[in-house]
Design a protein around this nucleic acid. Structure first.
Length: 598
DNA sequence: GCCGTTTTCGGCCCGACTGTTTTCAGTCG
């Protein structure tokens, strides 16, 4: 079993225990373990096999869970999960995906109304049977009906980061036009640069929350108001996305931004650390933990006085830096606030200096009208110069990609002739603004080998090898095709190494550990394809590649001049993987890049 | 179920909002 198999077993157990109403901390232990395992670079099997290490060395894995991991590795099954599954109907997971329905409410619906499908729930709502269940009512029934309809609509996929970014920028610009707004910032998974964004979180600094919330509702793109309280409101925005707006006062802005950015796991760990230091963190600030304060807080829960009372004694809150500093840490970049090892790294002052867009000097994967690009060679070069790049590689498709009118040797050499002339003319007046590399994106063929012969590829400055066909082949075949390309001395980099398309197509079956090992051994680069649909390598793979000493390249795979702008998406992906400038080959000057080539 | 420069037992992050309640449970992030 792989780490991700074991992680999903633990997640599943957590779901089932939660449904049963089991100990919440036991549920959390399973969830923590699942989360930790899913982020691990090393396989659990190899940790177990290593003579000097134990499974219990892993944070959040104790004797019990270590035993369960061993059972899973040995047998592929977990008796606990089998038992739970036998007791709990499968429909509960479908029902729990309806917003507003958690384990407790689903349990009541299943037990009292014998609901056995989403359709049955919908019918029960229409029949007015749900409102008669204890602690349900007409409003809850109507909300369930609305949410079922919403969940069924095809548009309800999480947005790609880039799509979310467009909405975030628009809504921030609108909110900043409000006179009552001192500051407005985006938070949540958008700020953490996640591949996809579920809903959009906006934080505002203001003394007049009502005016700020009114302003959001006056936005022309604002749809239904889902909820509205004194300081918080949720509305539907463009494309049906939920926008959560939270308003706080000036002195709490940093604490609220930290809290609202998450992730949940990061915040749990940070707040746990605060407790160890006799402090407590909430979205209003950092406060001394007073004996008996918990009981007091519970008594006044739901009343606004709770936050006001504690606010008087805040020792931090205005900026995020203050909040982290109050618990003895440097500021942690949002992209790595995922509840992994970032707090431990921060404590040891070993946080990576994450790569940034300004570090990028070249773009090594793009297409032109010679194959399936929208812009000509000249237009792409001009666009690259405008973006301040020092070099690019033009990498149109090889001949196997017939759909894109892929290049055979003759047409490729013709393009390279154009590139030579272009470079010459750019060099005529002293220092050229950009150098254009003669490249190609060759295909790794179904039967093995590449779609252009080595004697042609040897003339190229830069060769991207990608796999577009035969994606359904078994794992060992695909792995072999890729490793064969890696071992070819002409191949510079493997393009979009796993082939996944977010929300559309899973990765093909490939042994990435073997691919990374081969890349490390031969000095072949691996690509982080910055296309927002791809972001391939993913974060765990990119982190594993770094750990193995593989150099990575962030490339746009642009098919138009505008396509060059997705570099920032690739940067976010690299940052989330903890990558630094030195890990990325195209942060080098061209001369240094050439030295790195095998 | 995990964990320990106060602890091997007794804690475990924290608060807003809603709906259905006469005081709070459930859900969400």
């Amino acid at each position: 079993m792989t780490n991700s198999d074991i992680s999903s077993v633990f997640d599943h157990v957590a779901d089932l225990l939660e449904y049963q109403g089991g100990n919440v901390f036991r549920v959390r232990a399973y969830r923590n373990a699942a989360h930790t395992i899913s982020r691990m670079v090393e396989s659990l099997a190899s940790v177990r096999a290593a003579p000097d290490r134990k499974l219990t060395d892993i944070d959040g894995i104790g004797a019990d869970l270590a035993g369960k991991i061993e059972t899973l590795l040995d047998t592929g099954r977990l008796p606990l999960l089998d038992d739970l599954k036998a007791k709990i109907p499968a429909v509960v997971f479908e029902l729990m995906r309806v917003p507003g329905l958690g384990p407790k409410k689903v349990k009541v619906l299943v037990d009292e109304l014998r609901i056995d499908s989403l359709d049955a729930l919908e019918q029960a709502c229409r029949d007015g049977r749900v409102r008669d269940v204890k602690r349900f009512g007409a409003k809850t029934e109507a909300a369930i009906l609305d949410n079922i309809a919403f969940a069924k609509s095809p548009e309800h996929d999480r947005l790609l980061w880039e799509e979310a970014d467009e909405i975030v920028q628009t809504v921030l610009a609108w909110m900043r036009r409000c006179a009552a707004v001192r500051q407005a910032e985006g938070a949540g998974s958008w700020r953490r640069g996640r591949e996809t964004v579920g809903d959009i979180d906006i934080l505002v600094d203001s003394d007049d929350a009502a005016a700020v919330m009114d302003h959001l509702q006056a936005w022309k793109e604002c749809g239904d108001v889902l909820l509205r309280g004194d300081t918080k409101t949720s509305v539907r925005g463009p494309r049906g996305v939920q926008i959560d707006l939270r308003v706080v006062e000036h002195d709490s802005f940093g604490a609220a931004w930290q809290y609202f950015t998450g992730s949940k796991d990061h915040n749990v760990r940070l707040r746990s650390r605060a407790r160890d230091r006799k402090l407590t963190i909430n979205e209003y600030g950092v406060f001394p933990l007073v004996l008996g304060a918990d009981a007091d807080a519970k008594r006044v829960r739901g009343k606004k006085s709770a936050s006001r009372l504690s606010q008087a004694a805040a020792i931090a809150g205005r900026t995020e830096q203050d909040v982290y500093q109050a618990v003895g840490l440097p500021w942690i970049p949002p992209e790595i606030r995922e509840g992994g090892d970032e707090i431990a790294l921060a404590e040891r002052d070993e946080l990576p200096t994450l790569v940034s867009l300004d570090d990028i000097r070249g773009d090594l994967h793009m297409h032109t009208t010679a194959t399936d690009g929208e812009a000509t060679l000249g237009e792409m070069v001009r666009a690259a110069i405008e973006r301040g790049l020092a070099y690019i590689a033009v990498t149109d498709h090889g001949q196997r990609v017939t759909m894109a009118h892929g290049l055979d040797a003759k047409r490729l050499r013709k393009q390279w002739g154009e590139i030579d002339r272009l470079n010459d003319s750019l060099a005529e007046e002293g220092r050229p603004p950009i150098v254009v590399l003669k490249g190609i994106e060759v295909d790794m063929l179904e039967k093995g080998g590449l779609d252009l012969p080595d004697d042609v590829l040897e003339e190229a400055d830069w060769v991207v090898a990608s796999l577009h066909y035969g994606q359904n082949q078994p794992r060992d075949r695909i792995t072999k095709r890729i490793i064969e390309a890696i071992e070819n001395s002409c191949v510079s980099v493997i393009g979009h190494p796993t082939g996944r398309l977010i929300n559309r197509r899973p990765a093909y079956e490939v042994d990435m550990e073997a691919v990374i090992e081969a890349a490390a051994k031969t000095g072949t680069f691996l690509e982080i394809n910055a296309n927002p649909w791809r972001l391939d390598l993913n974060v765990p793979h990119a982190a594993a590649a770094k750990k193995a000493g593989v150099k990575l390249v962030i490339s746009t795979d642009a098919h138009s001049t505008r396509g060059l702008d997705v570099m920032r998406c690739g940067i976010l992906q690299a940052r989330r993987a903890g990558l630094e400038k030195e890990d990325i080959a195209n942060t080098r000057s061209l001369a240094q890049l050439k030295k790195l080539l095998k």
